[in-house]
Amino acid sequence: MRSRLVLAAAVLLGCVATPVAAADVSGPCALPNTGANLSEGPTNWANFVRPVGRVSAVTIFVDFPDTPATEPTATDYANLVPGGPQWFATSSYGRLTLDVTPVHRWFRMPQPSTAYGFQRGLSFATHRTYIADAVRAADAAVDFRGYQLLYVVPNRAAAAISFSPTLLAPAGRGVAADGREFRQVVTFGQDMWRWGFKVLNHESGHTFSLPDLYAYAGGHPFVGGWDLMGLISGPAPDNLAWHKWKLGWLDTAQLGCVNAPGTTQHTLTPLSAPGGVKAVVVRTGTTTALVAEVRTRAGLDAAACDTGVLIYRVDSAVNSGSGPVRVVDAHPATAACGDPLGDATFDLGAGEVSSYAEAGVRFDLLARGYTLRVTRT
C-alpha cells in the first residue's frame, strides 16, 4: 500500500486548489482553512464533491492494446461495489448515498498501458492525459451528463496501471465530457485487488476534501489504523469524528466545544452509533485543536484492537501526508495488531490510562458510558 499512496501524493500535491473560504463548518470548534494541501479546515465545496445526499458516479472500464481484456467487467466492478457505497452509508449515518453506474464494456485506450507513466512516477499532466483518453474512448457510448464523479477501472492484465491515484483539478484543468468538466476523478489500479473496495472509499475521500493521514515519507506514524485515510487495512477504519463533521455527516451540535478556561463535563456516544454528542474539541491555537472521541468494537470498527477514548491533535496548517492529524498514544511502549497506535485509546481499568494533559488542557475519563471531564487552564 505504501508505494501506491506515496505515488498518489505526487498527483494530489500537483493539483490541489488555492486557499479556500469557510463553507458550512463554523462556530467555536472550527479551525481556519489555511490553504494547506487538503487542509483540515472547512471545505470550499466549489472545489470538491459534497458528500451529502445522493452523489452520482459513473464507472468506465478500459483495456489496452498491449494487454487486452479477456474477463468480464463485472468481475472488476464486484470488487469495488457494493462494498464501497455501503461503507459510506454506514460511516455517514445514512447522510451519503453513493450511486455508482457501471458501463459494462471494455473501452480500448489509444496507447499501451506502459505509456501512461504509472510505474515511473505519475505527473498531473500524464494522469490527466490518461483520463482524457479514457473519456474519449467511451464518449460515443456514455452520456456523462448528470454525474458528479468519474471512476476509471483498468483490466486486471494491465500490470503497468499499478496504483490508484485521484485527480483533483482546479477549474479549467479538468477533463471535459458532454458539456461538463470532471475535476475529481479516481483512477483505479491493480492495488484494488489487494485492498478491495476500501480503495474506492479512501480515494473518494480525497474527492470529498479529506487529506492523507499516512506519512508521504513512509509508514503510518500519525493515526495508524484509526481512520481509512491513514492505514487502509487498519482494523478500526471508520472516519474520525473531525472528518465526519468536516464532511457534513455530524452536526456542530454533536461536538462539545471548549474554548474558555474552566472545567466542563461531557458524555460522549461511540462514533459507530447514530446520534448523541460524538466528540469534544478544545482549541489550543490559531490552527490547532485537541479532539476526544469514543471508539468501540461496533460498526465499521468491529475489529478494533482496543477501545475507549481516542485523543488526537488537528492542525489545519499542515499539508496532507505530513500529519495534519496525530493520535495521542495512551500506551506508547506497546502495540496492538502490529500497529504501534493500535492500543492508543484511554480507558478505565487495570493497565489502562484514564487521564491526559497537554498545552494547558486536561482530559479525565470519569466513567464508561463515556463521561469526560475537560479542564482548561
Results as ranks from 00 to 15, higher is better:
R4T: 14
L5W: 15
L5Y: 15
V6E: 12
V6M: 10
V6C: 05
L7H: 14
A10P: 02
A10H: 14
V11I: 08
L12I: 05
L12P: 01
A17L: 10
T18C: 01
T18R: 06
T18V: 01
P19W: 03
A21V: 09
A21R: 13
A21I: 09
A22Y: 05
A23G: 11
A23Q: 12
A23I: 03
D24V: 03
V25K: 10
V25G: 09
S26D: 14
G27I: 01
G27F: 00
G27C: 00
G27Q: 02
C29T: 03
C29R: 02
L31P: 04
P32M: 02
T34D: 05
T34W: 04
G35A: 06
A36N: 00
L38A: 09
S39F: 00
G41H: 02
G41Y: 00
G41L: 02
G41A: 04
P42T: 08
P42Y: 09
T43M: 08
N44S: 13
W45I: 05
W45S: 06
A46S: 14
A46C: 08
N47V: 05
N47W: 10
N47M: 07
F48Q: 09
V49L: 09
R50S: 03
V52P: 02
G53A: 05
R54L: 10
V55I: 03
